[in-house]
Design a protein around this nucleic acid. Structure first.
Lengths: 251, 251
DNA sequence: CGACATATTGATCGACTTCAAGTGTAGTGG
DNA sequence: CCACTACACTTGAAGTCGATCAATATGTCG
């Protein structure tokens, strides 16, 4: 109940977008207000439905308030690669603000409640709020950092390690937005989707999951995943959280 | 404001950085001048040397004027994944402006002549040049688009297709900065480095290269790679240039 | 209860890795 | 000019990982 000072990223009243940006740097009240004003509308998307289509020219970007989503690319050969997983607070397509054309689609992995931010509003922010602009830019940079880390994991680690790495990453990202409880979290993905994320077949993914279970590193059932031994999981996944850049400092 | 005469991206006098940004949108003369002013110094880096070290806190970002570089991650298991290839005009670590800590290193693949841009100068640009800021932001967004494309190629395509895809990408990127001649370009990578890029062993890469040669899609010797049949190469690599976003339009 | 998606298991095959050796090719010094 | 070195490239053989095909649970929801 303190009057106004810096945004407390753990304040439950904070909208998810401001809370996410506050992971990286302190926001002023004015900036929080500017973010709130920028929201043009809300929408609900059913699981399995596209939030943004591929090749689409967009006039707004979308933030997830509740639910999970995935960026994906469909290849001409019919296969699908999921290139990013998005949780509440994430901008699923902030990059479309400047790229204009979506090179990949975004689909809802679970029921999603989202907010839409018109590109016109983003442009105004970039014209008048340099610091907020840098934080928005930063949020796309962390996306890139995750992509690079995924590339390294996919190219150089066996599937079990790659899966362990992903679980560690999700754990910390979800924890940063208070979605971890009792060392676990709601995990709405199917094994098919997870296989498309790691770039392996479902059959092989299934065996990999069972391996992790047998090693007593995780449990996963009924849409909930629990980490039983984070240190060992991190070791198997060669996980170093540096790339998440979850540090609040002047940007 | 009446727009100043547009920068001709093909003007050979244009510095490589401005030429790169001019791929995405027209630059005003003032913006070109601001970019030139931002350069704090020049440096030469020998092949095999690091341009930026991992875990390093940086106070400037580096643009390549001549030569090739690679972002890479060394894993605890001793393996290496190259996550990005950089050619003249590319900012190899613009992301460090806001991320501060390098989560991956950057090494020179060939002798490199580079320019250094102090983060202080970038900050001034973000404070006073919204349009230029958006273009710099954009250049990090295209990096991200490449990462996502690489993820899809690595996860869902056989090695030969993945290699074909990469060659197509490099061809168009190099062409955009006028480094393609006679359907070929100087290609200073070793097979070991290329294997680390595609996430396969050198042995397998070598056989893959021979496959592409046998199919009469490319020649590669003496540090020069020539594309013999772009359409067939693009088809094999399921290559669609959309993700390069090489279109000049208002951003 | 049937209908349908999701998860699990088995068997077979091919892609890719590893280990190991051999073949250029360019540079250095006698 | 040749010997020597260093490095990149090429090839072979054996073995492993992961894909594919196919079938059988298990669950969930109308």
């Amino acid at each position: 109940m303190t009057p106004k000072p810096a945004a407390d990223p753990n304040a439950p009243s904070l909208n998810p977008l401001a809370r996410k940006l506050a992971i990286y740097d302190t926001l002023t009240d004015r900036e929080i207000a500017r973010l709130a004003e920028a929201i043009g509308g809300y929408r609900d998307v059913a699981a399995g439905e596209d939030i943004v289509g591929v090749d689409q020219r967009t006039v707004f970007s979308t933030v997830i308030l509740e639910g999970w989503a995935a960026r994906y690319k469909l290849l001409p050969n019919g296969r699908r690669q999921i290139t990013a997983l998005h949780i509440p607070g994430d901008f699923v397509d902030l990059h479309s603000f400047l790229l204009h054309v979506m090179d990949q689609g975004v689909t809802a992995l679970s029921h999603c409640h989202v907010a839409q931010v018109p590109h016109e509003a983003l442009r105004k922010i970039t014209d008048s709020e340099p610091h907020l602009t840098r934080l928005l830019w930063m949020s796309t940079l962390t996306d890139g950092a995750l992509h690079r880390e995924w590339l390294a994991a996919m190219g150089q680690m066996p599937t079990a390690a790659q899966a362990a790495h992903l679980v560690c990453e999700l754990y910390l990202r979800l924890d940063a937005v208070d979605l971890v409880s009792n060392a676990g979290f709601a995990f709405p993905m199917t094994q098919v989707e997870l296989a498309d994320t790691l770039g392996v077949s479902t059959v092989h993914l299934n065996r990999t999951v069972q391996e992790l279970r047998a090693m007593k590193l995780i449990t996963w059932s009924g849409g909930r995943l629990t980490v039983l031994d984070f240190p060992r999981l991190a070791k198997l996944g060669q996980f170093d959280p540096t790339y998440l850049h979850q540090r609040r400092e002047p940007r």
